[in-house]
Amino acid sequence: MPEITGLGIDLVYIPEFIAQMNEPGTQLARAFHPRELRLATARAAATGREPAYHLAGRWAAKEAFIKAWSSEFFGEPPRLADPVDWAQVWVESDAWNRPRLVLEGELAAGVGNVTTHVSISHDGEYATAVVSLERKTHG
């Protein structure tokens, strides 16, 4: 029987996020999977907004995932790798721009067998994401 075991939400102020992405020497771009970067570049060309605008929602999804995963272990010590390899959790989109969360590498191994659900939204200067984790339980 599937059970929701974690829920996370995050809100990103897009102008501040863009400023961080445009800082000389920033490491923030390393947080994104190459597919996310390519998609943001393509969307920027189509919309006239800069790529960082399109990455803000994906950053919110990454943060929401970490919160959802952490909430599974309430009352226990954190189980996150330090530092987190943010590029191992990324958002892909289908042909209709519906998002799906993908987990890779050590992060995926640490999380285990989980189904993720993600919703991303942009409104004005904000991007938000909600992530839930679903695990199969016996019974």
Rank of each mutant, 00 (worst) to 15 (best):
M1F: 09
E72W: 13
G25D: 10
A81Y: 13
E92T: 14
P99D: 09
T116K: 11
A31N: 10
P24T: 06
V91I: 15
A19P: 01
S132C: 13
L103D: 02
G139L: 12
I9Y: 02
S70K: 14
W96A: 14
N22T: 13
V114W: 07
E104F: 04
V84Q: 02
A87L: 01
R35S: 12
K67T: 08
E63G: 08
Y53N: 05
I4E: 02
V111H: 03
A129P: 06
H122K: 12
A60L: 04
R98C: 07
P24G: 01
T137C: 05
E63Y: 08
T26G: 10
S70W: 03
A60E: 00
N113C: 09
A19R: 13
G105A: 08
L133I: 08
Y13E: 14
A64H: 06
T47K: 09
A61Y: 09
A60Y: 09
G75M: 06
H138M: 08
I18Q: 14
D94S: 06
T5A: 01
K136Y: 05
A64K: 01
Y53V: 12
I4H: 05
L55V: 07
V111P: 03
F32D: 00
Q27P: 00
A19F: 01
A40T: 03
W86S: 04
H122Q: 13
W86I: 09
E16S: 15
K62C: 05
W96E: 13
V102G: 00
E72M: 15
T47D: 08
G124T: 05
V12G: 00
Y13M: 02
E125K: 12
T116C: 15
D82H: 15
P83V: 03
D94E: 05
I4D: 00
E63T: 11
N97H: 14
V114H: 09
F74H: 15
E63P: 08
E3R: 15
E106L: 13
E134F: 10
A31D: 00
P83H: 04
L101Q: 01
S93H: 15
I4L: 15
V102H: 09
W96F: 14
F65V: 05
H33E: 07
A129M: 05
A108T: 07
G139C: 05
Q88I: 04
N113G: 11
Y13A: 11
T116Y: 04
G25H: 14
Y13N: 10
T26N: 13
G25V: 02
R43T: 06
G139S: 12
S70D: 00
D123T: 12
G110P: 05
A108K: 15
V118H: 06
S71K: 10
A68K: 11
A95L: 12
P24L: 01
A29Y: 04
K67E: 00
